[in-house]
Nucleic acid binder design. Structure first.
Lengths: 336, 336
DNA sequence: TGACATTATGACACCGGTGTCACAGATCAT
DNA sequence: ATGATCTGTGACACCGGTGTCATAATGTCA
């Protein structure tokens, strides 16, 4: 099968390359007759333009990259789904690139990514959205990027976040108002800024209600189900047992629920459990998890929209947006 | 910031473009002194080659696309993870492209995808791996592709699958051997070939053990949690209630488990529940789900490996591989 | 009808690399 | 010493499109 290029089409149709190009891009100043003729040749020859050549000429790839290093698969799924929505709307494509935040390899890795697939822009999801090193590098390289759920504020770049601290405050307050005062907390991954913010929301709620913070009630997790299971063990062994547990995400909360159930504890009668994110698992298990709905898809969608605007050369205003998180109560929390 | 191209490097280093290109690609026949000199200029000018130009010259993008339309998010996550592993190993990148199987838009959509981002190859996941229309189109367009978990056998193209029929047979047999004879079944999405295969494995096990197939025990699902919840309602209302349920995937099984638990049924004492896939949720809930471990990551990894080989121009042998599925017993099944 | 604006088209350089080939100078076998 | 082979290098065409500009053809208005 011979390759069909713009040249063959031009020759076959008896016009110049440039005219073919005009038809291809729906440019004006082509007579209807010529346009018709060229379009017919497109069909006849089954012509498909070469995006690489086009990209070279226009200096665009129409591909956006998405960086992540996140133990929570559902978080990634939601990020992708939001990013894809924005991409497809503007005829962009999405390239996914998981890699590790830690280690010297990061910059080299990203450099290689940029080198092997010219991306028009990059979406940074946690924990990359807070990596000063990476951001410096991208600035230096003049790469467009947008940050999702980042805590860094003093930056001119595009950033869409949600109010984690406030969300954590509200869900903790919810537990307190139900009558809990002995509330354990499971932290997230130390590299993620959300970890600190959720923790601080928890602490703020305690002190707002005159409860003293007790660090023996705090377990170190990393957002993975597995780490949640470890933390659950530690927490359920505390004596006296906490009457409620607030885990920094739903996976870890699900792990607590599972262990509690295994140990014949009734949830929420014997122990209330709250999560964060409103991941699918929160409603796939029984009892359903009380949690904070974080608008992950929406954050990413907005970030990518802004990114595409910026790539298009627009002066993006409202670069820094904060969306609200919302309390969702389900069956896993109740009065002690 | 001025753009640094191969020309600037060449001028600056006092050599020809071609020599710079040689250094770039680690080609032989460059004197150590020259190589050194050029490398130094790379650093000084902070040069990054343009992958698009390279792609144009070499007719390669080093990007592979992954097509999917699957209600099970965890399935997609696993597909991606296997594909990424193979891609990164060979310095390829992965572009994800969810789209709908149904509707006339499909071919146009894929055509557009191919047009906007020249992909070196395409991974087709279910249900695309069984779409004759799509496969014909790709063949016509001379696009490299690999099929994952497809039921189509009479095709020369790369295909890696697992033995769904046998898996379904084994898990049904497992239930029968535990003593169940009144086993309900929840079908998957009608567009997926796995649906038919799992169903037929279920039927074969019944007849192998001289149990009569009863179609009032069969509910129609579509692999989504939601559809599982609907099917669960229907099944738990059957009188007499089945002593076991085999759902075509773990999400639907989880939905059955949730509803059963809500209705105060003990699992597995009152009713046994089995799933398929060994999705994360199968071990994130209590009781853990007995299921069939389908090597999704491994299938996709192998498919992409073969695809990359083929892109490289190799005559790929062993294009059609079948991996084994394995029974995993957890707490959700027991004697009736 | 002439002066001028507008529309349709093509020639050609260019995007930033890679492949082919020619060629000068070094190395080797006879 | 001489021809043959090998090594290092550059000139140049090419990949398949797009942008710029010149120019021919057509339309508009006084």
């Amino acid at each position: 099968m011979k390759k069909v290029t713009i040249n063959s089409v031009a020759t076959y149709a008896g016009v110049s390359k440039k005219t073919v190009s005009r038809v291809l891009n729906n440019e004006p100043n082509v007579s209807p007759a010529t346009r018709e003729k060229v379009l017919k040749v497109f069909k006849e020859l089954d012509y498909t333009p070469n995006p690489i050549a086009r990209g070279l000429a226009r200096n665009r790839s129409f591909i956006i990259g998405c960086l992540y290093d996140n133990p929570s698969k559902s978080y990634i799924t939601r990020v992708q789904s939001g990013a894809l929505e924005a991409c497809h709307k503007h005829n962009y494509n999405l390239l996914i690139h998981p890699c590790e935040l830690r280690g010297d390899a990061l910059i080299g890795n990203i450099e290689n990514l940029l080198m092997t697939s010219r991306l028009d822009g990059l979406v940074l999801t946690p924990p990359f959205s807070d990596s000063v090193e990476l951001i410096e590098f991208l600035k230096k390289k003049n790469v467009n990027y947008a940050r999702v759920a980042s805590a860094i504020e003093d930056d001119e770049s595009i950033s869409v976040r949600s109010n984690d601290e406030q969300g954590a405050f509200e869900i903790t307050e919810h537990l307190i108002e139900l009558g809990h005062s002995h509330i354990a907390f499971i932290k997230g991954h130390p590299d993620h800024s959300a970890t600190e913010q959720r923790f601080s929301g928890y602490q703020r709620a305690l002190s707002a209600h005159n409860l003293t913070f007790d660090d023996t009630l705090v377990a170190e997790g990393n957002f993975s189900y597995h780490s949640g299971a470890d933390s659950a063990k530690a927490i359920l062994d505390i004596n006296p047992r906490p009457s409620a547990v607030f885990a920094s995400n739903d996976y870890m909360a699900a792990a607590v629920l599972k262990l509690a159930t295994q140990r014949q504890l009734k949830v929420p009668e014997d122990i209330s459990i709250a999560g964060f994110d409103n991941a699918p698992i929160a409603r796939h298990i029984w009892p359903g998890l009380t949690t904070i709905a974080q608008p992950v898809e929406e954050m990413t969608r907005q970030a990518v929209e802004l990114l595409i605007e910026q790539i298009g050369g627009a002066q993006v205003q409202a670069r820094q947006t904060t969306l609200e998180a919302k309390l969702i109560t389900r069956e896993s929390t109740s009065k002690p």
